Computed example of a mutant assay.
Amino acid sequence: MKRRLGISIYPDHSNIEADMAYLDTASHLGFSRLFASMLEVSGSKEETAAKFKTILKYAKDKGFEVILDVAPNIFEQLQISYDDLSFFKELHADGIRLDVGFDGNKEALLTYNEYGLIIELNMSNDVAYLDNILTYQANKPFLYGCHNFYPQSGTGLDYDFFVNCSKRFKRHGLRTAAFITSSTATLGPWNINDGLPTLELHRSLPIDVQAKHLFATGLIDDVIIGNAYASDEELESLSKVNRYQLSLRVDVNERNNEVENDIITHNQHQRRGDISSSLIRSTEVRKKYAHSPNSLHSNEDPFQFGDVVIGNDCFGKYKNELQIVLQPHTDPRKNKVGQILEEEKFLLKYISPWSKFRLEKL
């Protein structure tokens, strides 16, 4: 399943010119998913339609898939029937996200709506909610899952809980989504906004590291910025994230020779299948650079977790093999050529047997 980046807008708290400018920038950088909140609607049905229709049409013309976040009170307030979703189709939405669930049969019936609207479910519950819906023979191609975001500091999901919830959807092959947070954006659905991530551990991390983490879990297809408006710099950094394999940044050693720097950044790395708990070994590169000399340097001190090392001329057949250190050790046959960026070191646990990964020069 192809992976996507997304943004969020809050038409009841913003102006259309700012939303359009945000959509322009994001579209140019390859974003293609839009989360639009209707939870704060306060006007009439006609006023709401006028407000949302223009901006959602603009988003559609920019290539975004548009999902509207709705709740039962919106249906009551705007006098919309669950048996007739034409209102949302007229707004140019591709689907609706049900913030609150029903009995299972209702959700299943909604997936057969005559307008082909996607029905997105709340993923942030570790219960058999989805299984119940599927027993009612839901139309799976029109069923998505999306986690909540959490505006209040300390209330985001714990990682293990997030994994359990996500697996319930992923094992059925459904498209999944979760939120990351901008450190500069201030707009959300409520008057509390300590950031809008799904995972609590993401609240203080750089935005691109948050995205790398969600993609690395293999559980999330669409990564959406929860708050608006992320800065141009944040959008650009996200646009450069490799969505399909982990790419880690390395603070390289100034003493490196040309061969070492080339090994680090200009190769597709793959961890050996017969793994060790001490090292991540990328062994194919040693064959490519078997005849390239590599003199000794930077190996006097013990290597630490997250250090990147390459075998030197004293390492026989293992010369020019690249390794990432998982357990501290010393070995004069290796040169320390860099270290994984501190805030990305926790991602090393996602490099499994046969995992493909890239390294980028900081």
Rank of each mutant, 00 (worst) to 15 (best):
T135I: 10
I263Q: 03
H269T: 03
P353L: 01
Y58N: 06
K336V: 12
K349R: 12
N132W: 15
N320E: 07
L246E: 03
L187P: 03
T265V: 13
S247R: 15
I55K: 00
D232E: 15
I16W: 04
M20E: 15
E47D: 13
L322P: 03
V337S: 02
G273I: 06
G306P: 04
L246A: 02
L34F: 02
R171V: 15
L201M: 14
F179H: 04
K170S: 05
F102M: 05
A230M: 02
D99P: 00
L56E: 04
Q304I: 11
D19Q: 13
I180G: 04
P141W: 02
D251L: 11
G104I: 06
L98R: 06
Q77V: 10
G311Q: 07
W354M: 15
A290E: 13
D158E: 14
D222T: 07
G116R: 08
L117P: 03
V308Y: 09
M1R: 10
L91K: 01
T184V: 12
K319W: 09
S42E: 15
Y229I: 06
H297K: 04
N294V: 06
T184E: 12
L196Y: 06
S81P: 04
S86E: 14
R33E: 10
H269E: 08
Y244C: 14
D19Y: 10
I55Y: 00
S277E: 14
E344F: 07
H147G: 06
S8Y: 01
V241A: 03
V127R: 15
L56G: 05
A216F: 05
F357N: 06
K2N: 09
V223I: 07
F87Q: 00
L246I: 05
R171E: 15
K287A: 13
R4A: 10
E120T: 12
D301K: 14
F161K: 14
H172E: 12
E284D: 10
L109D: 12
N261K: 03
K89Q: 13
V209Q: 05
R203N: 05
E300Q: 14
L78R: 00
L235M: 09
D274K: 10
D99E: 00
N294R: 00
Y82C: 11
L117A: 01
Y150H: 03
T330E: 14
P332E: 11
I220F: 00
P206C: 08
T111Y: 11
G154S: 03
H172T: 09
D19V: 11
D131H: 04
E300R: 12
G116I: 01
S231L: 09
C314S: 15
S295Y: 13
D160P: 06
V163Y: 08
A71S: 13
C314M: 14
R286T: 07
E40G: 13
I351Y: 00
D94P: 08
L322W: 01
V252A: 13
I74F: 00
L219W: 07
F303D: 03
L157K: 10
A178F: 04
R249F: 13
Q327S: 11
K2C: 10
N125A: 10
I225K: 01
D307S: 03
E40P: 11
